[in-house]
Structure formats: C-alpha cells, structure tokens
C-alpha cells in the first residue's frame, strides 16, 4: 500500500439472518477505494452472505433479513428510496462458478450495456472489457461463438469482462477461482492487480495463500462474526486474535 485511500463502501453493524438463523452478526467493515480487500474464514462463516449484501444480491433469497447499514459513497444502499438496480450498476459481481449466459461471447459482454441503454460504440465497449479481463487475444477471432465453448478459466474471465462492461466502481468476487485450475487461478490473480488501478475489489476466498498474495486488507470471519480486520501483512504475520492466528497458520478451517 502506497497512498492512503478513501473508504468507498462500508458495512455498518450489518446483521443478516436466514429465517431465524443468524448468518452475519453485527459486522462493521470498511472497503477502501482502489484496494483489494479479501474476506477469509471457514465454510459457513457468513463471508459470502456479507459479500452479497454489498450489492443487495440477498434480496432474491427467501426470508433473508438485514439490519444495519451498507453505505456506498455515503449513501445507504438499503435506504427505502435506494434503487437496488442502480446499486448493482455501480457494484459488479463475479460468482463462484463461471455463469456465462448461453449466448455468444460478444452478446455476453454486450448484455448489460444493451439492457441499460448504452448501445453506442458497442464494439469498442466489448473489446475494452475483454482486454481488461485479459481475454481479448484468446477470443477476438471467435466473438460470435457460444460462450459455453470456452474453458472454465476463460468463462470466468468472460464473466469478469461482462461485469466490467458497465464500468462499475466496485467488483465483488465470490471465490472466483474455486472452480479453476492453478494456471487459470494465477491468470485471474494477475488480472486483479491490473484491475485495482481503476477498481475497488472485494474478494471472498477459501484460499488463504490467495488472500495473502492479492489483497491489501484482509478480514477474517468466523460464525458470522468479524474476528479481525487489518492490513493483509499484519493479519498474516502478526495477528492480534488467537483464532486468527490459528486459522492463518492452518490449524483449523
């Protein structure tokens, strides 16, 4: 980390429950602009649920209730007058399993600009997004082929390109490499460093080495509670909390 940075996105005392099952318990977590923040923790610790609350993707799950505030540019995204669609235009997301649409490569990337009325210079938009996702050279001659013909790693980079086509300010990534081989994983990690130049990234990961390699800040969660948060280096080399130390040294999880 070189320069200080502003908080762009923040969870304020966020609690999320599925029915009466508490999944996230009073988490407060700042997300700094143009930094990579990773959220780590054992399975079922609530890290994905927390991530999905940043762009209101939990709205589609039955019986999810959220208390607290998520602020983006100091606006509460859960305010009664907040438009979840507008929130998602600024905060893109990449999922655990690559989920390209059963359409052509081109149409996958063009999809979001098209439905949001940004039809001008579409070819340029598509090319730029694919270049940003480091996929352009591999697909530039087969843009009209089905996206489902791509390899898993390519599909995931296509999903990144699809999210970037809307020029979001934040990219949320929910274990984006868990379904990929090591080579594809390395490519996506390289990509993250480039994207950080312009984007703010939050990445949920199972893989502690990945968190240590790519992120500036790391948050460690367990049982829905944020146990520790800080600069990645501190958290991995000199954690304050005993549980954090046990987790990052691989004693459980």
């Amino acid at each position: 980390m070189t320069q200080p940075s502003e908080v762009l996105l923040q969870a304020n005392a966020v609690s999320i429950a599925y029915g009466d099952q508490l999944a996230v318990n009073a988490v407060t977590l700042p997300i700094y602009q143009q930094r990579i923040t990773s959220i780590i923790g054992p399975s079922g610790c609530g890290k994905s649920t927390l991530l999905r609350s940043f762009n209101r993707m939990n709205d589609f799950i039955d019986q999810v209730t959220l208390t607290g505030k998520v602020t983006f540019n100091d606006q509460n995204v859960y305010a009664s007058d907040a438009d979840p669609v507008a929130v998602r235009l600024n905060i893109g997301m990449v999922f655990q399993k690559p989920n390209p649409f059963p359409k052509t490569i081109y149409d996958n990337v063009a999809w979001a600009p098209k439905i949001n009325g940004r039809r001008d210079n579409m070819d340029d938009r598509v090319e730029q997004a694919l270049r940003q996702a480091a996929l352009w050279d591999e697909v530039k001659d087969r843009l009209q082929e089905s996206a489902l013909n791509l390899s898993g790693g390519q599909q995931q980079r296509l999903c990144i390109a699809r999210a970037l086509a809307m020029n979001p300010l934040v990219l949320l990534m929910d274990e984006p490499c868990s379904a990929l081989d090591p080579v594809s994983t390395a490519r996506i990690e390289d990509l993250l460093f480039e994207l950080k130049e312009t984007l703010t990234i939050v990445i949920v990961t199972h893989n502690m080495q990945q968190a240590a390699r790519v992120s500036d800040f790391t948050a460690f969660m367990e049982n829905g509670v944020l146990i520790e948060y800080g600069p990645t280096e501190t958290l991995f080399t000199n954690p304050e909390n005993k549980r954090t130390e046990e987790y990052v040294t691989g004693r459980f999880g």
Binding site: F60, V85, M93, F95, F101, I115, R162, A163, M166
Partner: peptide
C-alpha cells in the same frame, strides 16, 4: 446462477 449473473449486472 444465470439469474444471479443477470441481476448482478443491473437487470
């Protein structure tokens, strides 16, 4: 997963 992908793009 397809619905999630589409919603996350502001649909």
């Amino acid at each position: 997963a397809l619905r999630d992908g589409a919603y996350s793009l502001g649909a």
